[in-house]
């Protein structure tokens, strides 16, 4: 039965659905603060959904709901059974389910952000879950961290180095971090932020806005057969 059956599952058709943006990084680097900042910046102009992957149930989701940056019903929490990286990389089923639930309830959406649970430098999102991903570090882990690399630091579409306001206090040299990050990332972008000081994380928001714009543009052209071909 079904040997030549098409793979016509509902999930992976990228056309006409929201861009799925993964945000990963170590515990305490500012992932949730960045998600809140993006909701603040992008919420007025985009249709958003957020999926959090908490270590303990709903901590991050509750933080976001309390922050009042997004309709609480547009924030779903996924539990990861002690293995946050498994849920974003090896077995993404529960996260895909949450993303699709948001799209079914509130769609069409422009952007769904999936925030991973705090993890290590090797944690990256599966391409089956996230179309693009941001990895968030902070300066207080020391200025050697970018040099150490790891798939999150080296391959993420955007590396955000947060808490620059703490650099003088922890003796972190931002020039060193910038140089090392550029060296291991082969030209992929790096942005420095202090979300405590800039609660809208405007530089990251600009990057995401551009990403969402090109995502729609790309998909519109792929699927709009009535579009003039000589345009």
């Amino acid at each position: 039965m079904g040997a030549n059956h098409d793979d016509h599952h509902d999930a992976a058709d990228p056309h006409g659905r929201a861009l799925r943006l993964g945000i990963g990084g170590p515990v305490g680097s500012g992932k949730t603060a960045l998600v809140a900042a993006l909701c603040r910046s992008l919420g007025p102009s985009m249709r958003l959904g957020v999926v959090t992957n908490d270590i303990y149930t709903t901590e991050d989701a509750e933080f976001l709901r309390r922050a009042g940056v997004l309709d609480p019903e547009r924030i779903l929490a996924v539990q990861t059974g002690c293995c946050p990286h498994t849920a974003i990389r090896d077995d993404i089923a529960a996260n895909i389910d949450a993303v699709e639930t948001l799209e079914e309830r509130f769609g069409p959406l422009d952007l769904v952000i999936v925030e991973s649970g705090g993890d290590n430098l090797t944690a990256t999102f599966s391409r089956g879950l996230a179309d693009r991903q941001i990895f968030v570090l902070d300066v207080s882990g020391g200025d050697k961290v970018p040099r150490k690399g790891g798939p999150g630091v080296t391959t993420a579409d955007l590396l955000v180095i947060n808490k620059t306001d703490l650099a003088p206090l922890v003796g972190a040299d931002l020039t060193v971090m910038s140089r090392d990050a550029a060296a291991v990332r082969e030209g992929r972008p790096v942005l420095f932020t202090s979300i405590r000081e800039d609660r809208s994380a405007h530089s990251v928001a600009e990057w995401v806005t551009s990403l969402v714009g090109s995502w729609h543009h790309q998909n519109d052209h792929t699927h709009d057969h009535s579009a003039p071909t000589n345009a």
Binding site: M1, G2, H5, D7, H9, D10, A93, A94, D97
Partner: peptide, 19 residues
């Protein structure tokens, strides 16, 4: 039911069948 839903979603891609 949640686990059943997730399994069906994955199984439809891994072992597609009309059933």
């Amino acid at each position: 039911r949640v686990q059943g839903r997730l399994l069906i979603r994955s199984a439809r891609r891994i072992w597609p069948s009309p059933v």
